[in-house]
Amino acid sequence: MSSAPVAANIEDRPRPVGDAGRAGQFVFVAAIILLCAWILVPLYLLFVNTLSSPAEVTGFPKSGLPSFSMGSVQFFLSFSGVGQALWNSLLVAVLTMVFSILLGAPAGYALSRFEFPGKEIFRLLVVMTRAFPLPLLALPLAVMFIRTGLDDTALGLALVHTVLALPFAVLITFSLFAGIPVELEEAAWTLGCNRLQAFIKVILPLVLPGIVASAVFAFTISWNEVFAASVLTIENRTLTAFLVQNLNVSPLHLKFAGGTALVLPALIFIFAVRKYLFAMWGIANR
């Protein structure tokens, strides 16, 4: 547009530094509020609608406040098998966590400390395991599981989830170990430790928070996985397999209640281990 008169009005002298600082602070606070709202508003709506009666959920306008009608919640609590499914979900997620660390951390250590032929290809292959969609793999897996007796067990499902979580476990632990100078280990060797002792006494304490964080990551991957869980388990359903498939064809008020049932345990878990998550980012930033 007509830029000349505007340009003439601009004062050609530096602004006080405080101005820029204030503007920066405003953007910073606005971004924080936006990020918090991004997470909290959907959760709030989920909880409010869970505690509302069916008529309020479909009705409009909405009050935005819960009326503490427990109908939807009660329906869920009485829905047979929810407790068992919750237990199965936990079991599978914990197993996945353990397996992916037991397999992933040594791989990450090897990648960060050793040069070996095919190292780059190995790193690529690890990520490749995520390249095949589960619906494609589920059929042959299920056939094999039925034949080997792994079918419908927490162990079998945890193995599948471990495959899904492993790339992340390997890559996260790789960056953890890479962030710790090899000189620390070498110093330990010169002071009389053997390789294993140096690892356990020097390296492990440093990476433990990060490892726990990547374990949490494996936990959430397993917790959220639906397709393999619903094909590979029958009586030992996980909560997602148990609920998600039925929920998306259920009335709105039950969708909200089911959503809460799925979100709440994960929220509690993440809350319990939050400091390890922060620890991981601290290390990754070093």
Binding site: A138, L139, V143, I146, S230, Q245, N246
Partner: peptide
């Protein structure tokens, strides 16, 4: 009960096994 996807996959797997 299951959605058609997992429903048929599971059925296929059992019939094949």
């Amino acid at each position: 009960t299951q959605e058609p996807g997992p429903f048929l996959t599971r059925l296929d797997a059992e019939l094949e096994a």
